[in-house]
Design a protein around this nucleic acid. Sequence first.
DNA 1: TGTACATCAGTGAACGCGCGTTCACTGATGTAC
DNA 2: TGTACATCAGTGAACGCGCGTTCACTGATGTAC
Lengths: 231, 231
Amino acid sequence: MSEEKHDPKEKLLDAAESLFACKGFDEVSIRELAAAADVNVAAVNYHFQGKENLFHEVIIRRFVVQRDRSLEALEKVLGSTKEKPNVASVVRALVEENLKGTLSVPTSGSFMTLLAREMHSQHGHSSTAFFREMVMPVFQAYSTALLQVRPSLQQEQISWIMASIIGQIHHFVTRWHKKKFLPEDGDDFKIMVQVFPALGQPLEEYIQLVADHITAFSMAAIDSLYPEVVE
Amino acid sequence: MSEEKHDPKEKLLDAAESLFACKGFDEVSIRELAAAADVNVAAVNYHFQGKENLFHEVIIRRFVVQRDRSLEALEKVLGSTKEKPNVASVVRALVEENLKGTLSVPTSGSFMTLLAREMHSQHGHSSTAFFREMVMPVFQAYSTALLQVRPSLQQEQISWIMASIIGQIHHFVTRWHKKKFLPEDGDDFKIMVQVFPALGQPLEEYIQLVADHITAFSMAAIDSLYPEVVE
DNA sequence: TGTACATCAGTGAACGCGCGTTCACTGATGTAC
DNA sequence: TGTACATCAGTGAACGCGCGTTCACTGATGTAC
């Protein structure tokens, strides 16, 4: 089949992406990676000069996709000729695209966790570069869009709003991810679903329910705290 | 001085609490722990039968305090004779107590991260027990309180509201923690403060600003989506 | 085209280090008579 | 009270394992004449 990669570098990246996402950096050994990618143990060092670098490249590769998806989704909303973009449509794009991007890709359930590691890494340089190239552009684009659709908002108010929305997104992503690795007949699973029924739904429905809730909750807050100024 | 502990078990727990919080489970070695606690390397296994158990006990010890503080804060609000408790006061108690509890204790900035590890642990039993005894009681108490102060709310609506609030709390805690370990003259630091000015404040002010924001944001959403039914 | 050599991707085995853990031990405290 | 023994908290040194990494190597491809 044409899908099978033979480039060992690609094979390693693919294997690393799913293994790191499942088990975390420290819990995956180079031997395990090599076995999963069907390459030699020495290949990781040969192609990436160390385990840490492989990890870094996995993160970058995934995040470039995520970033571009988020930016495209926003452009689509802003460029829509059918209906004038408003606050709700921008918020919904942010919420929906992040949920889908972080949950829908099969292996990527815990990339929020991996990202946390990357951001905390002491390498300094890589951390700054990552922040500037992956996180900031999305943040800036959505901030600007919000200002555009509701000019009465001030920059700092937008920062607070974005933080509240992103916080909610992360939390619901984490919830799903936590549930995902639980045995369906275990006590933990039952309790979680009982406390939070939406977790009993399939992924697609969960995403929709969560997107609806975060959008509604945040829009209600925004409209109430910072209402549109009608001139 | 009377503060100095001589019980090696206590000394180990104290040293472990701050080291684990700073560096995470894998990045702290038993030798490091022993040195910090000024005990023998073998002491960890002697007192706790393994590194994993020590970690578990550290988490428990911290979380019992946190849980009890949260429950006390709620009781204080509900039992107040001066003013009738309302939704806002319950929400504020939840937000403020969690922020203080997670940020004010000197070593505990990253206990959210450690907690994540504990919840994901495959031990099954410990995970369930922890959830049932540490997380659920607080969740239940605040849910019941919300129902009490606004009886028109349904159980599932409360679950969604709580999730949105807790998500915001975690996010702002994480932000502070991320900033805390950054050099104050580094690029990362400058960018973060520029993007999110509240991070430039001292901890006490940050907590107040964040508590105000989350409470206001969430109350606006709640009152707008699920208004009080006046009979 | 044919030959000799250089380059390069990729490899298998081995290395050395740091880890969590173990174990035979010590010295102090408690107990029995 | 004095002696002999048992119990126990705590220890130092050593063990063995798994890890990331290294290195001398192979065999295929590219290049020069």
